[in-house]
Amino acid sequence: MHVRIRLFAAHREAAGQDDYVADLPAGTRAHDVPRLLEARFPGLSAAAPSFAYAVNRKQVPADTELRDGDELALLPPLAGG
């Protein structure tokens, strides 16, 4: 299945891009994604404990199962205001 991954801040800079369409196995959960994409984006796996996850622009629990066509955002610690 295809899931659009959104990257921000330090992870966007390290990746050199802010989005990426990943081909993921069925049943993948949000918190699996940093490990699955580690080869493509080194450093994501180490950062995983700091991530919150949003699916289709809504924050979700880390173990949320992804669906084909979802947009998954890996959110580093927020710093708005």
Partner: peptide, 20 residues
């Protein structure tokens, strides 16, 4: 809750703010 980030840039370089 707002998905916003900021990078501080100063004489020592740049760092993404982590308020945890």
């Amino acid at each position: 809750r707002a998905p916003i980030w900021k990078k501080e840039v100063g004489p020592q370089g740049a760092v993404w703010v982590d308020t945890r």
